[in-house]
């Protein structure tokens, strides 16, 4: 199976799952913004994406996208370490034009994943999962997402944690997005710099949209300004 055996096949899987995850992030971040504009609207979306069959299907597809992306990342990294050989260079200098994030995608990915667990606990566990199992744990109705968000981000520690997380995500995305296009072969000499700019723009937009929510609540804007 060339999607497993061939290096470019493996990269194809990485880029397709990666692109899929980027699209999810775009959707997720736009959805988040709604909480600022209209908490009611946000809650309506939460309702819509609650324990419905289509939301569950989408969630499992999303989860498998994550899992495949992560498993392939581990496999590629393992292979690449082996290809590097047993002896390592004693002196290693950075090359001009090589971004730090491109060399550290696994580390960035691990950071993103680590925070993701927290994030799942904070939101998914208390919202969709609760609806699914019917076990009530918190003070809010599971569909009142806006209240959750407001409560969580009133705590500055969470805000800082999320901002750090988003910074790692930004780094991961700046390389990931153009890299996905490159791996799909959607690049050439003229478009190479443009594709990199596009990648930076998309990752910045996504991350800014995500960041808007904690910053909004941290500044206390959520409780009536």
């Amino acid at each position: 199976m060339w999607l497993i055996d061939s290096s470019i096949g493996r990269k194809l899987v990485m880029s397709i799952t990666g692109t899929f995850l980027v699209l999810f992030l775009l959707f997720h971040s736009i959805m988040n913004l709604v909480v600022i504009i209209s908490p009611e609207g946000y809650n309506a979306i939460c309702e819509f994406l609650g324990a419905n069959w289509y939301a569950l299907v989408a969630t499992s597809i999303l989860a498998s996208g994550f899992v495949i992306h992560i498993l392939y990342a581990l496999y590629l990294t393992f292979q690449n370490m082996r290809a590097r050989g047993a002896e390592r260079y004693a002196v290693k200098n950075n090359q001009k034009g090589v971004s730090w994030s491109s060399q550290n995608m696994l580390v960035l990915g691990a950071i993103v994943l680590g925070f993701l667990v927290l994030h799942m606990y904070n939101f998914w566990f208390k919202m969709q999962f609760v609806e699914l199992t019917g076990i009530h744990t918190g003070d809010f109705h599971p569909a009142d997402g806006a209240a959750y968000v407001q409560q969580l981000f009133s705590n500055w520690v969470y805000c800082v944690v999320y901002i750090v997380w988003l910074a790692a995500l930004w780094l991961h995305l700046t390389h990931g997005i153009w890299s996905a296009l490159q791996s799909l072969g959607l690049n050439n000499k003229t478009w190479l710099p443009r594709v990199k700019v596009i990648a930076n723009v998309i990752s910045t937009i996504v991350v800014l949209m995500f960041m808007a929510v904690p910053v909004y609540y941290l500044l206390g804007c959520g409780s009536g300004c």
Binding site: S7, Q95, V98, Q103, W178, Q182, S183
Partner: peptide, 18 residues
């Protein structure tokens, strides 16, 4: 290339730089 034990390209661009 794969058979000979070379690694997978992750588009770091170090090759082009050097």
């Amino acid at each position: 290339m794969d058979e000979l034990g070379f690694g997978n390209c992750t588009n770091t661009g170090a090759c082009e730089a050097e």
